[in-house]
Design a binder for these strands. Structure first.
Lengths: 352, 352
DNA sequence: CTGAAAGCGCTTACAG
DNA sequence: CTGAAAGCGCTTACAG
């Protein structure tokens, strides 16, 4: 019945107020459900707002209230290389859903804006386009993250940042998880001669996952038969690590890759060499952002709860913005060991 | 040397102007490089802005200039199901890079905000949080897309929307591409008994890809030996389509899946039945958003240039916002046939 | 308790 | 040509 053609021209708060016969200030308070305003007026204002299709101007509100009503998700320029698409989508999903609950917009800011002399994300923050930021960088040496997190602006980091101990961050126990998955190869599959292919060593995850690997082999007295090769989280690095071993390859019966992309590259290389996985060599990866269940054999890995990390980080960010709940500065979420075939475990049914 | 501690407190244009000894209006014009202002003043203002670390307030600018300085990328609530993570990231990458070139922020708006009675993206537009929107929906029946695109607000759609012929959109020729890949199975691999598994039939891509398949089999007089089964773009649908054939499966020597996810599900199902691909049955997919090169065998598919579509769409959006260049209302980009092993073509070297 | 002004930061349009 | 006011839309803080 109410075939109210949505107005194409902007509707201002004043228009709503005029229709009811109150001031814009009163209408504002009515819509904000202020106790100052009578129920009768509130109802009238709300009806008028609906009738006119009023939507508050974000600029007007932001300027007056000094709140952008948006948070930024920062994509460091290294992301394409270090993280996969799936990882970022998990993070985006987590951030969006929490932001949605709070009627807050999500701004995605990519970094490589060096032309302007200022990191793009610093611009975002300084221009007050966003009230806070989620940063999911990885490089230990990323000074921008440090500057931003110490600027006093609300920022929550996803990952582990031991050098930024005062920052608020949400991560996982990479050391423990890496140790666990390595011990799975040792204890369940009896592997004794292990290779670890690391990520780029300026990334904390790479450092921690190597540490976990080393702890596992040391605890089982397998350090002498084990080796560590440096990679960079790319599929090519996994391939090169395997191919680079040459005839030394036969000295290993298990490979712990620091992420799934490298495990996939390594898996392909092993296949091309006629080495069968897991019969000849067990391999495992890390992340479970999507790839590892698609391969044949499926890659046994550690599932990093990216979406949950993002959700928690975003909730913490709102706490910071609202100035409430200090809470712990670093939180660690639990991870899951996902057993597939590449380690020697039996094939499971489809895991969706 | 210039160890200028960045000010934590906001720097307003007035502060810059005061430092130079001009009015805020003059400083504004100086930074905008207005011909009204002398070079000397411009230099002084720019120096002061740099010294103070001035970044314009997005709210102030937006309110005055009636321009948000942001565009929105709309994620329809059906996206999780219909598109993959990779697709959306390709789009986001394309949109971001063009937006970055124009100093414009990118807002990501997810749709499922029905609680507020207004589609989230309509809120975004009406609140002037964004000056325009890129919509990458798919459902033919999505009335919100129609409303939004006809609201007069600048909107560019990614995909084909024959029902919205007045809208600006960027897509590919799904019919032609589907026909081509089907003919590849027929002409190159001599397949004659073909099955097509469609997407959800309320999606234009599903309709078009089916049409291309039917055109191919009709042109080669293979319609009688061919069949069409309805799917929904999910891995499970691909699996179910194969398993649902039962002993009829032996009647087919080629399957054209309407996307890669279904092809993957089908591939797994065929493997589980002991049917070898491509020896017994050739299969092909559509999209090439990431998955199809990871499987064994790799899936032959049509590469949809998602990032380029997004770039073109975003450029068109800026044209609309700036009110310039009408140009064609629908553009089609070329696609690539990506030959892998699942059709029977020889294994190629790694395609990165 | 309530009405209406002031002002967030910016840039455009006006007056001189 | 240039100076300074006006006003974008909103909400808070003030005056009555």
């Amino acid at each position: 019945m109410s075939d109210n053609t949505q107005p194409r021209t902007r509707v201002r708060l004043r228009d709503v107020a005029d229709l009811v016969g109150v001031t814009a200030a009163a209408a504002s308070m009515a819509l904000a459900d202020s106790p100052r305003i009578s129920d009768k007026t509130k109802r009238a204002v709300r009806a008028a707002a609906t009738q006119l299709g009023y939507v508050p101007s974000s600029a007007g509100r932001a300027l007056r209230s000094q709140r952008a009503g948006a948070i930024a998700l920062i994509v460091p320029n290294t992301t394409q290389h270090v993280f996969g698409h799936s990882y970022f989508m998990h993070v985006l999903t987590g951030v969006s859903s929490v932001a949605n609950e709070r009627d807050t917009q999500v701004l995605v800011s990519t970094n490589p804006d060096e032309a302007h002399g200022l990191a793009a994300y610093e611009r975002v923050m300084r221009s007050k386009s966003a009230d806070g930021a989620i940063v999911t960088s990885a490089a230990v040496t990323d000074l921008n993250v440090e500057r931003l997190s110490q600027s006093g602006l609300p920022v929550v980091l996803i990952g582990n940042f031991p050098y930024l101990s005062t920052s608020v961050s949400v991560g996982i126990d990479d050391v423990g998880a890496s140790r666990s998955i390595t011990e799975h190869l040792i204890e369940v599959h009896g592997r004794t001669r292990l290779l670890h292919v690391t990520g780029p060593m300026d990334h904390q995850t790479a450092i921690d996952r190597r540490e976990g690997f080393l702890a596992a082999v040391a605890a089982h007295d397998l350090a002498d038969a084990s080796r560590v090769v440096e990679g960079d989280f790319s599929e090519e690095a996994g391939r090169d690590a395997v191919l680079g071993l040459g005839r030394d390859l036969t000295g290993f019966d298990g490979i712990v890759f620091a992420n799934d992309d490298m495990a996939f590259g390594g898996l392909r290389a092993l296949k091309s060499l006629g080495v069968s996985v897991p019969q000849d060599i067990s391999i495992v990866g890390f992340d479970d952002f999507g790839l590892s269940r698609l391969t044949t054999p499926g890659i046994t890995t550690v599932r990093v709860p990216a979406e949950r990390m993002a959700r928690v980080a975003t909730e913490r960010l709102f706490d910071l913005i609202e100035g409430s709940k200090p809470g712990p500065s670093h939180q660690e979420l639990a991870v899951t060991l996902v057993l597939r075939e590449s380690c020697g475990c039996e094939s499971k049914a489809d895991d969706a």
